[in-house]
């Protein structure tokens, strides 16, 4: 089986700093990681590979330094890595990204064998749109299975796949034909630690680097800024709350008294909650005047 996993290198969003004046991202010292959800997809692909045999190809579209992410994926056990990098891709939105990736996956199919399953993560943590996966599926005319919690089975003979998909209010069991595209939820299993021979092999594997032309994209009009219907017009920092939290006094007070103080403050701020919660008053008896006036 040939499994293709789309991974993206993203800034570790917990550590992003914003320039206080220009509102630009200060990239210095901000580490990059593989989009965490994509690791769930990679782990699932590696598992399928163990169960059914085959190869895992990881692909990313991004700047040159995204090679680091691919190298890492190789260390986890992927067999091949393709970096799609070209200045024509700069400024791609999700439509243009899915176009470029779809073209690359088609080219991967030509060069290394048709994929049976294309994986993406549920969403990225920087773009956060969950749109690229469906976009790729549509362009390659693959059956689309999003929010897959578990791959239940693959029938190689009849070329069918059965999955559990997270839906609103429950789980769907879906069966469809191969090839298909799966966007993977974070599963129960963390990404494996590659064996020493995987790591050695990874260190020696050359990452395949493709330009737009290499990926068979003759017309760059569908790529990058030109191929992107959306445009970011303004970037700004969220307004921070003027006031910090009002602190409930805790000095030398028994906890129950502190709790009383907090409850009084809660109802003072949100009087309607008294009704919602069935407030009996501060002493626990109905009708006793409550604490509104206190604060």
């Amino acid at each position: 089986m040939h499994l293709v996993v789309c991974i993206k290198q993203v800034p570790d969003s917990a550590q992003i700093r914003v320039h206080p004046v220009t509102n630009t991202i200060m990239r210095q010292g901000v580490p990059t990681i593989i989009n965490p959800h994509d690791l769930a997809a990679l782990e699932e692909a590696l598992k399928l590979c163990e169960a059914y045999g085959g190869e895992v190809t990881v692909v990313t579209m991004g700047p040159k330094m995204a090679e680091d992410a691919l190298r890492k994926a190789l260390t986890f056990g992927a067999h091949r890595a393709v970096l799609l990098t070209d200045r024509h891709f700069a400024g791609s939105d999700t439509l243009a990204t899915s176009f470029a990736l779809a073209q690359a996956i088609a080219e991967i199919g030509e060069t290394f064998g048709t994929p049976d399953v294309v994986f993406t993560g549920k969403q990225t943590i920087d773009g956060d749109t969950a749109q690229v996966g469906p976009g790729i599926a549509k362009r390659l005319d693959l059956q689309q299975l999003t929010y897959v919690a578990k791959i239940l089975s693959i029938d190689a003979a009849s070329r069918e796949i059965t999955v559990e998909r997270r839906a609103e209010g429950g789980s769907q069991i879906l069966r469809t034909r191969l090839p298909c595209l799966v966007t993977m939820l974070d599963g129960a299993d963390a990404i494996r630690r590659g064996r020493l021979d995987d790591a050695l092999r990874a260190a020696r594997t050359k990452v395949v680097k493709w330009s737009a032309a290499d990926a068979g994209i003759a017309e760059p009009a569908n790529c990058g800024l030109r191929g992107s219907p959306t445009v970011v017009k303004r970037v700004f920092a969220p307004t921070s709350r003027e006031q910090k939290a009002r602190q409930i006094d805790t000095t030398n007070k028994p906890l129950r008294e502190v709790a009383d103080g907090l409850i009084a403050a809660i109802f003072a701020d949100q009087p309607a909650l008294k009704h919602d919660l069935g407030f009996l008053g501060s002493t626990g008896q109905q009708g006793v005047p409550d604490v509104d006036r206190e604060s």
Binding site: R193, G194, R195, L196, D197, A199
Partner: peptide
Amino acid sequence: RTDRAGDVV
């Protein structure tokens, strides 16, 4: 020896 599964290098 390393902390990865596999042989001595």
